[in-house]
């Protein structure tokens, strides 16, 4: 299967929009090669601003630019955008409901050898609690591109979680992307795996493994963590009566928590969570870390079996 990093979907969308929309401006904080925003800089240098290693100012400048009618995309690593500059995101951008878009690259454990300091595993928790903010977690290149295009079309702040590593291309340019709508990737009636980002590919793999054991798993891709598609989640709970969530993030506060909130409120069913289990990351090869932290297809299979046992 073809693999491509989501960060490149982001920059491809920026370049496409930059050609037709003069209001698109891009900022970075000395990571333009890593985030791939330098590809925009090469085409439109007059609309690119490198603010240096100063993430709080990065979001502040983006806020100011949005107040002059620009559509700023602020790029940096996800941990800095959501963590270091969290209060700027909260008070300057979200409280003011400004039209600022944030591309947080190098999210998740797949950031690899750089280790725990750079592996953002907390952004879902940090961003989804902010009023006015839309949070996208694209699963592949095309989804990242579409999420970026959609962000520019929307009014208000948007956070897009992107990754460094190439991940399987699961969708096509034609696959629809609608904010707040989950995407059914595979039909199934026995158990539902609800995943986002890189874990969508692992979940589809898991579904294939389960199929060999005659277990039909439904796979739902939540590319829009906020607003969350409650309907598709409640329907899955009602129809399959067992749920596994899977994310490249801490199990506390992320997709698993968000799905649990919906399920418990509306249609309680057994639920298991795949994610990093309340620990920091560590250095290692990306794939190796996925195994080390039990984020692989086989881990999802085990969780599915566990939840099926609980379902009775």
């Amino acid at each position: 299967m073809e693999k491509k990093a989501t960060r490149y979907g982001y920059s491809e969308a920026l370049i496409e929009m930059g050609a037709t929309n003069k209001n698109i401006v891009v900022l970075d904080a000395d990571l333009s090669r890593s985030t791939s925003s330098e590809l925009f800089k090469k085409k439109f240098p007059e609309r690119f601003f490198n603010v240096g290693i100063a993430e709080q100012n990065l979001l502040g400048l983006a806020a100011g630019l949005s107040l002059t009618g620009k559509i700023p995309f602020a790029s940096t690593y996800s941990i800095f955008a959501s963590g270091r500059a969290w209060e700027q995101l909260r008070t300057t951008i979200c409280y003011s409901n400004l039209n600022v878009k944030i591309g947080g690259s190098h999210g998740g454990i797949l950031t690899g050898p750089d280790g725990a300091s750079h592996q953002a595993l907390e952004e879902f928790a940090l961003t989804r609690i902010l009023p006015n903010l839309t949070v996208f977690v694209p699963c592949d290149f095309f989804e990242a591109k579409k999420a970026t295009l959609a962000a520019a079309e929307m009014k208000g702040p948007v956070y897009i979680r992107l990754g460094r590593e190439p991940v399987p291309v699961l969708t096509t340019p034609e696959t629809k992307f609608i904010s707040g709508e989950g995407l059914l990737m595979k039909e199934g009636q026995d158990v539902t795996i609800i995943a986002c980002g890189s874990l969508v590919a692992e979940s589809l793999q898991a579904a294939l493994l389960l199929e060999k054991e005659n277990i039909k798993a439904r796979v739902i891709n939540i590319h829009s963590l906020k607003p969350l598609d409650e309907k598709i989640i409640i329907q899955a709970a009602r129809e399959t009566k067992a749920i596994v969530t899977a994310e490249e993030h801490q199990i506390y506060g992320g997709l698993g928590s968000a799905v649990s909130e919906v399920v418990v409120k509306n249609y309680p069913v057994p639920l298991e969570m795949i994610g990093v289990n309340d620990t920091f990351g560590t250095s290692g090869a990306p794939e190796e870390l996925m195994r080390f932290f039990h984020l692989k297809d086989i881990d999802i299979v085990a969780a599915a079996k566990k939840v099926l046992a609980r379902k009775g």
Binding site: Q56, L61, G64, S66, T68, Q88, T92
Partner: peptide
């Protein structure tokens, strides 16, 4: 920062 962004 916001003022600087507006000026920019």
């Amino acid at each position: 920062s916001v003022a600087t962004g507006i000026a920019l």
